[in-house]
Every structure is written in structure tokens, then in C-alpha cells.
Design a protein around this nucleic acid. Structure first.
Lengths: 296, 296
DNA sequence: CTTCTGATG
DNA sequence: CATCGGAAG
């Protein structure tokens, strides 16, 4: 099974880039194909797709969601209009979906979804940006608290040997190799010491950065600033990740970055797991099954 | 001498429509020529140009103002950023420019300029829209007070026989013939009885609607809603005018609407006056010269 | 429908 | 640089 994660930076905008709209812009130009959301999704062959920065409530998405084919869809929007928001699309309906982290300051921002497919837990998360109102680091504490809350929430199941996937926009580059200009960014949110240390803690505690299982080298990024056209020169950051718990590791077949998919300032990332990870296929295993009712 | 008036609905936007910019839009489309501000101005052969809804302070206009050629420029911006604002361009420097109506509630909105060229007074005005916050008529009283203030300010000079031009966006259609759908708009600001009566008062007191001197017929408009593409079907309003005082009437050579000029939801309007109206040409007259120092 | 800000990324 | 909302026209 394939799992994909994409920060779409506004689903309506991302979707529109793949459509030849009869809008004022289209009147002035030849429709030019960029990939956009719809084409990407229809060609994805994914089982589960996590989106971040949807920036719309479900009822504002009618046009984008029309004709997408048979997907189960779950949304968690922020209270503030046009801000944040995550969505989870899946080929089969999850047995459970949870969107609360048990704290209003987190839940108000539509950043978290946890879904269960058999024994597999899939988290779709949009970790906060650490920049505050005045482009300072004032939101870093909130960001770290969010990381810790998600970590704590999953710890028991991870320790029990439940296969878990945590995918999304982590808004942090882990190591120097994970961004093109590490020296220039040591004081910028996304690459400060505290943020990197929190990421380190996840890895030390057993979470696996799936992309690095297969690719140890540099120049692999998932986000590029929209300024100065730096994407063409690949001056980017790897801030979108798919982590898996140790119990999911044996099922991991591949991990990848879809750097040619356009429509957002992020590109999609993903992994392939053996179908048996859910415990729902013919060949079953004896891994423990998550019981969200107990823990969450 | 030719005088022109145009509500540009954002000078930066209007200007950009005449430029083949290297911007994200241009990347996706073939540059298509629409007239825009720069081309219009350079081909205008005007002596004086009044702009309304500039929607920028002078320091935000560097790019638009670059390479426009030799124009004297005067600006009056609103306090609130991106709102209202008028500008007066002229081939010769006005002897005087006045922007205050003597009341902060008017002056804060950048709606008024009065310039003197010899004995000729030129007013560039952006009369308020009568629609309030809730799309009601709550700004009609302010609009009427503005009309009355401008009227009163000019009355003494008009009565003395000074040639005066008042050009701009009046935000009112005078008579049924001045809008395509009079019946549908009797309750909308711009065509309510009180607004039309204020316009009537100006005419009764001697102000001349220059366009009607030459064109008594229907279907001549200066503004079209941006919704539903009604400009192509000419469903518009004539709300931009050039009025002249009785003393200027003998100098009036033509009046016109430039309905094919694009770049704004309004099109330019203008008149031609005999050059001698300023009293500065070789053939002088004995008309009184305005003395702003006394009155304003 | 379109122009602007202002917040946010 | 680009998204989205809101005010305004």
C-alpha cells in the first residue's frame, strides 16, 4: 500500500492549477497544464493520502472534490477561516478517525488526524510553523508542545509494537543535509537547535525517517520558498516526512519525494508498505492491534 | 487644451495591465496588450489629467511613474492604505494646488484637488460612494455633504466669472438616460432621488455637463460593473463627468468618453478647451483671475 | 468581479 | 512570493 503526504498550500488554489478554468485568468491566457491536485490524486495509486494546509472548510471545497472518484474523506479545519487544516483521503474507510489532541489550543488549528486501518495507525499532521506574528520565534514553544503532545499520544502504541505511520509537514529540517543553506538558517525557525533536538528525540526513541532508509545523500527537498524562483535552482528544505514506528519497519518497501509535482510550494512525499501491515490481508501476523478506545 | 479624467481603480493595477510584466501571471500566458495607464497617458496629448482611486501613496508608485515623461504630478492620498486617493498630472506646473476642503473627515480620504493654471481653476474630485459597510445607503449623507462642500467652495469664484472645470468620478448618474437600467437602480446609491437632486442643484446653479452639450443620446457610459462581464454588453452608468462653470463655456470645443480605453472598471472622460481659457496665451481676455489666497 | 491590506507561511 | 480573508467599490 502506498501512503502519500502533501502540504497543498490551499487546496482550492492547488486544485485550480490543474484545471483549465473559465475564469478571468483563463480568458487572458492559453490554458497550460501544471500537475495540480486532481491529476496528481487520480494518478497516485495511493491507499491513503494526507493533506496539510487545506485552508478551507469542507463546504468550501465542493468544486475541488467533485469527480475525484471513490475516496473516503475526513477533514479537520481550523477555527480561523483560510488557515491551516488537514484532510485524509483513503481508498477504504478507516475503522476509526481521531482529530483531537485533547487540548483546545491544538485542536482549534486543524493540524492533526489519526486513522486506523486494521492494526495500522496513520497520523496526518501539520506541525506548526515556529514563526510568530512579528516574524520572530515566538511560536516555537507552541510548535514544540505540539510535537511533544503527538509524541506522547503515540508512545504507548509504539512501545506495544503497533505499526504506526506519522506523515506530514514537520516544519523542521532534521539535519544539515536536509536543507540547502544550513549555515544561513541556524537562527530561523525550522532549523534552530531546539527544533532539531525535538526531531532528534523522536529518532532516538525509535521513529524512523523512511526517506533516509533509502537515500543518504544531499539535495533532496520537499519545500522551496516562493520567492526568487529558488525551486528551479533546488534551494530547498526537507521538512515533509513520513516516519514509521519500529513495528512498521519490516513492512517498508520504499520511500520517495515527488519533486516534480507542482501546485504548491511543497511537493508530495510518500512510502510504500507491504499490504500485510494492516493485518487485514490474507496473510495475517501476530502483531498487536491498536486499541484507540483505551488510549485516546 | 485637453483635460482628461479617469478613475483608474488602483493605479498600480491599471498600469500593470499595459505592461508585459515578468511576473507569475506572465509566465503562464502570452503577454496580451490591453491599453493600461502608461500607453494611454503617453498617447493622450492632454494638458491636465485627473486620476481618481489611485489607491496608493506616491512612494508606492515608483515603478508606475518611471519613464512617464515630463509631467508635473500632485497627489492626495487617503489616510487608510489602499483606499481612494487622487492625482493630478499636468504639462505645466500649476501656480497653486489645494487639497484641503477644510474638514478632516473629507481630507482624510484623499478625494479633492484644486489647481490653478493662470486664471483657470481645475478641480479633480473623487466624490464618495454612498454605499456603507453593510452595503446599505449609510454613506449617502457623507457623500452629499462632500458634494455640498465642493459646491460651496467654488461658488464665489464661479459667481465672479472665473472659468472652472470640475472633473472626476461623481458616483452619481444624473438622469435616466445616464444609466442602462434606471428602473432597477432607483434604490441603489448612485441613482437615488437625493443624490440626483444634488446633481440637479449643480446644474440649476449653472454648472454645465459638458458631455451633454455635444451628445443628447443614450448608451453613453463611463463605468460598468466588473461582475457578469456587462461591459461587453454596455450595461453601464455615466458617473464620470467634466463640468464647467458658465465662464468656461465659451472656450469649450469638445467633450468625449473614451470607452475603448481599458485597465479599469471606469473609462476616461475629457474635454477640449480653447488654450486662451487660462489667460496665459498671447491673446489675453479680461476675465477675472481667481485668487485662491483670498477664498480658500 | 476586482482592487487593495494584513496575517501567515 | 503566494495564499486566503475582509473591506470596499
Amino acid at each position: 500500500m502506498k501512503l502519500l503526504s502533501w502540504n497543498v498550500n490551499g487546496l482550492r488554489s492547488c486544485w485550480s492549477k490543474g484545471e483549465a478554468r473559465a475564469d478571468p485568468v483563463a480568458k487572458r491566457q492559453e490554458p497550460e497544464r501544471v500537475t495540480g491536485f486532481k491529476t496528481w490524486l487520480s494518478r497516485s495509486r495511493a491507499s491513503v493520502v494526507g493533506l496539510q494546509e487545506v485552508r478551507a472548510r469542507e463546504d468550501q471545497l465542493d468544486e475541488c472534490l467533485k469527480g475525484l472518484g471513490r475516496w473516503h474523506r475526513a477533514f479537520s479545519a481550523a477555527t480561523r477561516p483560510g488557515y491551516s487544516g488537514v484532510a485524509l483521503f483513503s481508498r477504504t474507510k478507516p475503522e476509526e478517525v481521531l482529530t483531537s489532541l485533547g487540548e483546545a489550543s491544538f485542536d482549534d488549528e486543524g493540524r492533526f488526524q489519526l486513522a486506523r486501518f486494521g492494526r495500522l495507525l496513520v497520523v496526518n499532521a501539520y506541525f506548526p510553523n515556529g514563526n510568530g506574528k512579528d516574524r520572530d520565534l515566538s511560536r516555537v514553544p507552541y510548535k514544540l508542545a505540539f510535537y511533544q503532545r503527538v509524541f506522547d499520544l503515540l508512545e504507548h502504541e509504539k512501545a506495544r509494537g503497533v505499526p504506526i505511520v506519522v506523515m506530514g509537514d514537520f516544519n523542521t529540517a532534521h539535519r544539515e543535509i536536509d536543507l540547502a543553506r544550513p549555515k544561513d538558517n541556524v537562527k530561523n525557525s525550522g532549523f534552530t537547535t531546539v527544533e532539531r533536538e525535538e526531531f532528534d528525540r523522536w529518532i532516538r526513541q525509535g521513529w524512523i525517517d523512511t526517506f533516509r532508509v533509502f537515500e543518504p545523500g544531499p539535495d533532496h527537498y520537499t519545500w522551496w520558498s516562493q520567492r526568487f524562483g529558488v525551486r528551479a535552482r533546488n534551494i530547498g528544505w526537507r521538512i515533509d516526512y513520513v516516519l514509521v514506528s519500529p513495528a512498521a519497519r519490516p513492512f517498508l518497501r520504499s520511500a520517495f519525494i515527488q519533486r516534480n509535482v507542482e501546485g504548491s510550494d511543497h511537493c508530495p512525499v510518500g512510502i510504500e508498505l507491504d499490504d500485510s501491515v494492516t493485518g487485514m490481508s490474507t496473510t495475517s501476523t501476530s502483531s498487536p492491534r491498536a486499541d484507540l478506545g483505551d488510549r485516546l
